[in-house]
Amino acid sequence: MQSVIESLNWLEATRLAEFIRESEWAFPAAESVHVIALALVIGTISIVDLRLLGLASTNRIYSELSKQVLPWTWGAFGLAAISGTLMFISQSRTYLDNTAFRIKFALMFLAGVNMLVFQLITSGEASTWDRNAAAPLAGKIAATLSLVFWIAIVFFGRRVGFTTIPI
């Protein structure tokens, strides 16, 4: 624990962290990129989730649609992670102490586990239900969980901004 606090202190003291804290525009710029990136993560993931649930794009082959859409999800996720890290290092200890921030990361972990389980088990046999209007039950459950987790992640992410003390 001691070493974690030490590394966070070091992180906060870096020139980059100091710049983000003190610049008039760096933090809002990182936030803007974060909002756009997370909007694209959630929107594109929803396209796939709604397909699994049989609620949209039902006339399209599932694996073709996900192959076309998910690279953009990952690209946007990378952007969200970079911009999020930049915001985090500006006040890392404040964020780690923040309840909304902790809940958000717990939910992101759960969303990741949900995705891994789906990718490793359910989508492995996608060829058997690729052309069906909806995925089998396991796929529908994964899609529902994904939608719920991501909406909750947005809510707790927005709460972080309301519960941390402004610089």
Partner: peptide, 17 residues
């Protein structure tokens, strides 16, 4: 306010994607 902003962001996700 954060709840309204959350819905606002979800709607941005719908529109922008």
């Amino acid at each position: 306010i954060p709840l309204l902003q959350t819905i606002h962001i979800i709607a941005i996700a719908m529109a922008l994607s």
